[in-house]
Design a protein around this nucleic acid. Structure first.
Lengths: 341, 341
DNA sequence: TTGTACGCGTTATCAA
DNA sequence: TTGATAACGCGTACAA
C-alpha cells in the first residue's frame, strides 16, 4: 500500500472547494458535471498526484472489473497461448486479468480460488489441475452465483457450466490413423492420467482408430504416466521391451520429445524404426530432429472464446443456467517423425 | 463479485448474538477472544458459507499482502523460472503474487503500473520492457514511498533502488573467449537493443574479449536487432555476406536457434564452419542439433532474492534509501555448437 | 449542475 | 473477554 500517496478525492475536494461527490463524478467522467469543473478537477488531480483507490471503489460498486485465471502452468506453451487470447479479449472488454498457476496441485488450486473469491474477481476461467478430482471449491464458488468457464479440461461435475475444449477423441483418432496409414502395425500409446477426461478421450481415440482398422489392442503397448520429461524416458525404456513396436502416439509433446531423444541414444532410427506423433505443438517439436508430427490446439482462440463467454455471463447473470460450450477442432501438423522416408 | 455470497461478519454476528467486532477478531484468530466463542463463530462462518471480503479488509488495514510482478513475457523460459522463484518466496512470506506481462510495450507497462498502484499492492518487482526509456511511471510510484525491486534489467535512472541482475559483461566475455580459444578468428555478434543496459554489457563483453586477445573489432560483424526468431534469420542472411566468419555469439538463444536452423538449410555446418553460442539456456537449446552452447541465468534464485529484498523493504519502509543490490554470476553451459570436432 | 448523507465490509480504538 | 463506535475511500440516491 502506498503510505506516501495519501491523496484522496477529499483532498481534491478541499483544495478546490468542491464537494467530494462532484470530484468523484468528475474523475469518473460522469456527464452529470460541467465540462469546466471536470477539467479543473482532473487537472488538480494530476497536479496532486492523485491515484484512485480501487479497493474502496470496488468495495462500493461491488465489481472489480477483474477476471481470475487459474491454469496449471503458465510456462507451458499451450497455456501461454491461451493466456494471450484471454488478455486480448479481456482488455478489449475493459477487464483486468489476474493469472494464477496451480502447478497441477489441488491444494494450490483451492487456495487460489479462495483468494480470488475473497478479492471478489468478477468471474473465473479455470483449467483444473491434474490432481483435481474433488470439486467442492469450484462448486461453492459457482453455487454463490459466480461465473465460471472451464478451459481445455471441462469437468463432468458441472454439466451446466460453460466450457471451451477441443475434440480430443477426433484428434487422437486422426493421429493414430495416420500412423496406421503409414503402414505401422504395432502402435504404442503414452497415455496421461486417466482421471482426467481429456486424457481418457485421447486414449479412446487411439483405441478406436486401431479397432476400426482391425488392429487388436495390446494393453502392453499403453504406458500411463503424467507425461513429464522423465516419464517420456522411462516409458521409452519400457517400450523397448517390445521390439515389434513401430509407432508411438504420445498424449503430449513433452514425453514424445524426451522419448525420441532417448531412443536416438539407443540407436533407434526415428521415424524409420519407430514413427512418432505428439500432442500440443510445443515449439520444441519444430526444432527437434526429426521434427515432430503433432496436434495443434488453437489456444489463442480458446482463450478468446472463453473470455467472451465469461464476460457475457458476468454481464448477464440471469443467463447463468444456460449452457454455452464449444468444442474446437485441433489440427494435425505433419512433420518428419511420422513419415516414411 | 459474488452477488450471491452476501454473508458478512454482521450476518454471523446476528445469528449468534455476538458483536461483529468479536466476530472479526475470531475470524482473524485473535487471541483476544475466548476459545469457546471463537470456535462457535468459526463453525457458524463455514456453516453459512462466509467468504471474507478482502477489499474491505485491505481498505481498512491499508495492506493487501500482495506483490505485483511486471515482466515482459511470462512464456519466456528465463522469466518463467524467475516467477517460480518469486512465487515460492512470496508464499512462504505470506504474500500473494499478481503476475502481469508488458509484452515489451511501454504503454502496457504504464497501464499495469497504474492498475497495480490503484489496487494498492504492497510492492512491485519489475523487469522493464524493451521500449522503456522513460521512467516517469516508475518514478512517481517510487516517489510515493512504494517499494520496488528491479530484476534482470536494472535502470540507471534509479541508482538508489534495489536490483537483482547478472554479470552480463563477464558472461559475454567468457563466451567470446571460449570461441577464441577454439581457434575462431572472425566472430560475429547478434546484439540486442542498445538502449537496454544488459545488451550494452553483452556487447561490451564481446568486444572486450576480442580486444584482449588482439583481435580487431569489425563493426560489420555486429548485427543489432530485438533478437526475435525472425531477426535470427535475417541477421544470419546478412552474416553470410562475410564468408570468413567462423564464430557467432548471439545475445539470446532465440536468435541463435533460428540462425542455426537457417544456416543449416544453406548447407553451413555447425559448428565446423561456424561455431555458435547463445544466451539464456532456453529448453530448445538442449534439443536442437547441434545442441547449443549457452549461458544459464539463475532465474529461480534471482526471483527468490528479489522477493526477499522486496519483502524486507515492505516490512521496513525506513530502509528505503538503502541500496541493496546483487549481481549474480551466470554459468556457461558448453554443448556441441561451440566445440571443434 | 452540485451538494448532502449514507453505506459498502472490515478493523482499530476505546470503554465496559 | 466483549461491545460500541468510528473510520478506511469511494459512489450514489436524493435533495437542492
Amino acid at each position: 500500500m502506498s503510505k506516501g500517496n495519501k491523496i484522496t478525492i477529499h483532498d481534491i475536494s478541499k483544495a478546490l472547494n468542491i464537494d467530494s461527490s462532484t470530484v468523484s463524478r468528475a474523475l469518473n467522467n460522469s456527464p452529470r458535471v460541467s465540462v469546466k469543473t471536470r477539467e479543473k478537477i482532473q487537472k488538480k488531480a494530476t497536479e496532486l498526484g492523485y491515484q484512485r483507490n480501487s479497493l474502496a471503489s470496488n468495495l462500493r460498486t461491488n465489481r472489480t472489473n477483474t477476471i481470475g485465471v487459474i491454469i496449471p502452468r503458465i510456462a507451458r506453451h499451450f497455456f501461454a497461448t491461451v493466456i494471450a487470447g484471454i488478455e486480448e479479449t479481456a482488455y478489449e472488454e475493459g477487464y483486468n486479468v489476474v493469472i494464477c498457476q496451480s502447478l497441477e496441485s489441488l491444494d494450490r488450486e483451492i487456495k487460489i480460488m479462495n483468494s480470488l473469491a475473497s478479492n471478489r474477481v468478477d468471474g473465473i476461467l479455470i483449467s483444473t489441475s491434474m490432481e483435481t478430482s474433488k470439486f467442492d471449491h469450484i462448486k461453492s464458488y459457482i453455487d454463490n452465483n459466480n461465473p465460471v468457464v472451464f478451459i481445455d479440461r471441462p469437468s463432468e461435475a458441472f454439466p451446466e457450466c460453460s466450457n471451451i475444449s477441443i475434440d480430443n477423441f477426433k484428434a487422437s483418432y486422426d493421429a493414430t490413423k495416420l500412423l496406421i496409414e503409414k503402414g505401422r502395425k504395432h502402435i504404442a500409446h503414452f497415455s496421461g492420467p486417466q482421471n482426467i477426461g481429456l486424457y481418457q478421450e485421447r486414449k479412446k481415440g487411439y483405441m478406436s482408430a486401431l479397432q476400426e482398422h482391425n488392429i487388436s489392442i495390446n494393453k502392453n503397448y499403453i504406458f500411463e504416466s503424467i507425461l513429464s520429461e522423465e516419464d517420456g524416458i522411462s516409458c521409452a525404456k519400457k517400450l523397448l521391451k517390445y521390439p515389434e513396436i513401430d509407432g508411438l502416439y504420445s498424449a503430449n509433446d513433452t514425453a514424445a520429445i524426451s522419448a525420441i531423444q532417448y531412443l536416438k541414444t539407443k540407436g533407434i532410427q526415428i521415424p524409420k524404426q519407430i514413427a512418432v506423433i505428439g500432442f500440443n505443438n510445443d515449439p520444441i517439436s519444430e526444432v527437434i530432429e526429426p521434427s515432430l508430427t503433432t496436434i495443434h490446439q488453437p489456444g489463442f482462440e480458446m482463450g478468446k472464446l472463453a473470455t467472451e463467454m465469461l464476460v457475457h455471463q458476468i454481464k448477464n447473470k440471469s443467463d447463468k443456467g444456460i449452457h454455452h460450450s464449444k468444442i474446437l477442432v485441433p489440427e494435425l501438423i505433419i512433420r518428419k517423425s511420422s513419415e516414411n522416408e
